[in-house]
């Protein structure tokens, strides 16, 4: 996309992918590690709710009169990707998870900042989910201490 410009629709696709990948990642952690299973499943469930919340907010806000074609630029799209090596132990898995949450929350805060022209609802929704994702870091780090 020209100079990294993203349409509102593309941003929503990205967010859906982020939350779906995140949910799958935490489900994998839950199936592999008994310790922290409950937290991992909680994060997976929360990600699916985040996805629903973001898509619903967009669909309820989008209007033909908004500047949706030129919503964001210069975003770090690497936040979408997350994978767990086959032989990763719990410590490594938690480090990957912390990195994921940092990237995702940074991405969402950036989107919130750049979508101010799309009424209040969309930036507010991204800020809200960004805070939730950032809050996971503390939980994950406390688990690292125990691992």
């Amino acid at each position: 996309m020209a100079e990294g410009e993203l349409t509102a629709s593309a941003i929503m696709c990205l967010a859906e992918e982020v939350e779906e990948n995140s949910a799958a990642f935490y489900e994998k952690l839950a199936s592999r590690f008994a310790k922290g299973r409950e937290e991992f499943l909680g994060f997976a469930e929360e990600s699916r709710k985040n996805k629903t919340f973001l898509v619903r907010t967009y669909q309820e806000t989008v209007s033909d009169a908004l500047e949706t074609a030129f919503s964001c630029k210069g975003l770090d799209l690497a936040a979408v990707e997350v994978s767990l090596p086959e032989n990763a132990g719990l410590q490594e898995a938690l480090e990957i998870a912390v990195s994921l949450e940092r990237r995702v929350s940074d991405l969402y805060f950036q989107i919130a900042e750049q979508t101010q022209s799309l009424l209040a609802t969309i930036p507010r929704a991204f800020s809200r989910v960004a805070k939730k994702r950032a809050a996971r870091i503390e939980v994950l780090q406390s688990m690292m201490g125990d691992a």
Binding site: T7, A8, S9, Q59, V62, A65, T68, A69
Partner: peptide, 28 residues
């Protein structure tokens, strides 16, 4: 609401507008 996405994509197919524009039209 249930058919929001289907209706929006139909508009893009029959008119040519972008999917964001179609969804905006559906919402209006």
């Amino acid at each position: 609401e249930e058919h929001f996405e289907e209706l929006s994509r139909i508009q893009t197919m029959e008119h040519g507008k972008t999917i964001d524009e179609s969804r905006g039209e559906t919402r209006r």
